[in-house]
Design a protein around this nucleic acid. Structure first.
Lengths: 317, 317
DNA sequence: GTAATAGTGTCTTTCAGACAGTATGAC
DNA sequence: GTCATACTGTCTGAAAGACACTATTAC
């Protein structure tokens, strides 16, 4: 029996309803400029570049590139697939025998920031949407608000308390920057972000600061931030974000901006040295104080990428 | 200006072609049985459970669950999204003013193996499709074949040589089990797997052993294997694969099966102990030699999951 | 000289790799 | 006792974390 027969045999009864599926491509473009991580947005910060998958697109990635360039006139470097959503709020609706369904395929891109192309096209600070994710200065500012609001939701449930503590690094749990998405989802579930009220979730408390976005775009941004923070630890993705040459401190500030945490200078440098990613240039950056030596990424880097990986306790023969 | 207006302003000229998009859901279900990692297949091992996204599906995940249960009658536990493909070989075709396009959204699931449900439904050894990925016994067997065939493709290109060495752990580079997808893609590009010839890639050499699959299912399996191997290092996903209780060696064999490598016993145990995942049971497994103590996963594990994460050199204030 | 920023040395603790050992069963 | 498998102890070297130090500019 062929594959197609196998499928038909165990398939469902056909319906006469005609189903139309809309596939939307969404791009989250990230750059880091002067210690601020930013995303490229439309509509004054409330949405990402997006558009339907079209016939002229040779691939999903090509489609994303086309839409971003059309809508923002911003050149596009490295991009990778993020996640595919079938947003229930924009989900299946049936009218007569016509049914509609919408799928969003999101991509994450990394670039250097270039002057934005249109009136409503702009670069926005990522932490405008997630103030609680930036712990570079004083983490306690927002923490206090969150802790108070959460207390109400947790109530007497030990399970809820454990979840909140793990997500937000409270009560002995360490803060884990990768959990950005989990934190957003938790806040949403608790009814503490504005979208929750809009989407008809129960809302028991005050809203936590942080700008809302169109549809589920803010959730997509949280997904992007989580992915970015996890990836920066085992891949040299900062490559795409830095200019031709840069000082070591600039590189550190870039990673700090994404991680939302301050890093330890000399340990950071030791790590860099062990990775053998950089090479010196002959130039120095001017400024107050001692001038900083400028570095660039090693050219041979492309071939070697993605070899490190984490460790398992492998047995040697 | 609203979001929708912004989109329309910079949008393309509308075409009168009506575009139909087919969204297919594909499930890669993995289990480990007796030191063998296996996948659930249809059509005697040549395809995965799959079916179109339907109106009745409340979400993508629900759709996947429905199709798997319908086609294989196998219960489904933990699943996560894998990748979305717009396969060019099954891609855009235009007939009159009707255009068609197919998207595949794949999911990875983890389970314990249960007797398979239909005639052509079966569990297959993953390494049947990627013999070169199993290095538990003798890595040199296939390595020799691969090395010979690759030599031809590499030629005098230093860049190609570097890529091959990094992927296959030759010439001083360490073997990295996570690169399963890269290795498959490289072999495909070199024309050394059967699909390459089928899809019209140039074929310069002999084929490397390994069973072919329907459409791009083997590529999807490679994606799944890579994801699984990467994830097993920072998440306790083996949880889903093991029975109620098990010996430490059984757990080790399970990880080894997925990683395709032997692990170091006492170091593996030390790692387990530091993670605090397990608790003892009162029972012992019988067998030749000293009976093994049986363990189970700690119940409190659910709340704590996904907190570990890798490290950045964080500065303490 | 001071202020300001750039960059290095090194001590201590923790952890990963390797190898040796002991424990408990069947016979 | 032997054989086979289960499990533990510990030595060693390599990283990770923390802290203090020196270097080079502008003024």
């Amino acid at each position: 029996m062929s594959y197609d027969n196998a499928k038909r045999d165990s398939g469902s009864v056909m319906k006469t309803v005609i189903q139309t599926i809309h596939a939307e491509l969404i791009a989250v473009l990230v750059a880091v400029t002067g210690s601020v991580p930013r995303v490229l947005t439309l509509a004054d910060g409330s949405a990402f570049p997006a558009g339907p998958l079209e016939l002229t697109h040779r691939s999903l990635q090509a489609g994303v590139r086309a839409w971003v360039e059309r809508q923002t006139h911003h050149p596009l470097g490295y991009i990778e697939q993020l996640y595919t959503f079938a947003d229930p709020t924009r989900g299946a609706t049936v009218a007569g025998d016509q049914a509609e369904r919408s799928i969003s395929i999101s991509y994450l891109g990394l670039t250097r920031e270039i002057a934005s192309g249109g009136d409503t096209v702009s670069w926005q600070n990522i932490y405008r949407y997630f103030p609680w994710e930036d712990r570079r200065s004083d983490p306690t500012l927002i923490e206090r608000t969150i802790r108070a609001e959460m207390g109400r939701w947790v109530g007497t449930s030990a399970e809820r308390a454990a979840r909140v503590n793990a997500c937000f690094g409270l009560d002995g749990s360490p803060w884990n920057e990768d959990l950005a998405l989990s934190r957003y989802e938790l806040l949403y579930e608790m009814g503490l972000v504005r979208e929750a009220a809009r989407d008809g979730q129960s809302n028991n408390g005050e809203f936590i600061p942080g700008a809302m976005m169109h549809a589920d775009h803010r959730r997509i941004l949280a997904t992007a931030l989580s992915r970015l923070r996890a990836k920066i630890k085992y891949r040299a993705i900062v490559y795409e974000l830095m200019p031709e040459s840069f000082s070591l401190l600039e590189l550190q500030r870039c990673v700090e901006a994404l991680a939302g945490q301050r890093l330890h200078k000399s340990n950071f440098r030791r790590l860099l040295a062990s990775q053998n990613l950089l090479e010196e240039t002959a130039h120095y950056a001017p400024g107050v104080g001692r001038p900083a030596k400028l570095f660039r990424f090693r050219a041979a880097l492309l071939a070697e990428r993605a070899i490190a990986g984490t460790r398992l306790p492998i047995a040697r023969p």
